Simulated scan of single mutants.
Amino acid sequence: MIHMVRFNWPKYLVAAVLLVAAAALPWPWRLLAVPGAAGVAVSLAATWWVYDRSRLYEWRWALDLVPPPRRYAVISTGLDEISPALRGLLPDAEPTVLDCFDPVIMTEGSVRRARRLHPPPAGAVPAGVTALPVADGGQDAVFLAFAAHELRVPAQRAALFAEVARALRPGGHLVLVEHCRGAATVAAYGPGAWHFYPRREWLGLARGARLTLAGETTMTPLVRALVFRR
């Protein structure tokens, strides 16, 4: 949760200033601060629940959904939080970490701050979402966690899914982890939930890339892992 606050601190600062200003209003106008304070508290609690208290970053759940890969790729678009955990979980596998950060495409301030605070790991390979530097059919699995939604143009997301499908061997798996926008995310993050996409968006992209839904699980009602098979 602390990381998320650091990446998004301007938004929290603005919220804090507005809350202080509302609390300074004469009664009963100061009651306007109550829904704002509740919204910030709910957002922080949801973030803590997802990132600090759920099983998300253990990643053992993934091996309940896909066979342990011998070769796999991790794709990030600014912040790679998962490759160290996967290396520990799959010590005998051959990983490829693909860094798809592009400052022209990823213009969100939070992504840029995350990038400055957490540079890509040693050995990460610079990549483009329309041309992943991996061989056709060379990967048993591709892991894409909290990265695809940073591509705000539909054609970019479609190109990335097509590249993932090309990189996977027949029978290989894409493990996609995202906040899928729905009632729970709207309740937790308010307007911020529209930074994410609904489950049907990812299902449509997978169909377009000729990937088949093979399984899914949830880490709290806010985060969903979708597994697609080539």
Rank of each mutant, 00 (worst) to 15 (best):
A158Y: 00
A45K: 11
V74I: 07
A62V: 12
L19N: 11
L174R: 04
A62I: 06
R199F: 00
R199V: 07
V177I: 07
T107N: 01
G123F: 03
Y12Q: 01
P26K: 10
G172C: 03
V111C: 13
A193I: 13
P26M: 02
L151M: 14
F146G: 06
P198I: 04
L174I: 10
G88F: 01
P28Y: 01
H118S: 08
V111N: 14
P28E: 01
R71K: 09
T212R: 13
L222E: 10
V5K: 06
W49T: 06
A46G: 09
A24R: 05
A193H: 12
V223T: 12
A141I: 11
V129P: 05
R169G: 02
F101V: 06
P119Y: 13
R53C: 10
I75F: 03
M106S: 09
G190L: 12
Y51Q: 04
L65A: 09
N8T: 15
A41N: 07
L65C: 08
R166Q: 00
A209Y: 10
R199T: 10
R152A: 12
I2K: 03
L89W: 06
G88R: 14
M219I: 13
L211G: 01
A159M: 00
G182Y: 05
L44M: 02
M106Q: 14
R87D: 03
T96S: 07
R70Y: 10
L203P: 01
Q156E: 12
L176C: 14
V164T: 08
A21P: 05
P120F: 13
A165F: 03
A45V: 14
D52F: 08
H3A: 15
R6E: 00
G128D: 09
A33P: 11
G208M: 04
P35F: 00
G172R: 01
Y51L: 09
P35M: 00
T47N: 09
F101E: 01
I82L: 14
G215T: 14
R207L: 11
I2W: 06
G128R: 11
F196A: 13
R181D: 04
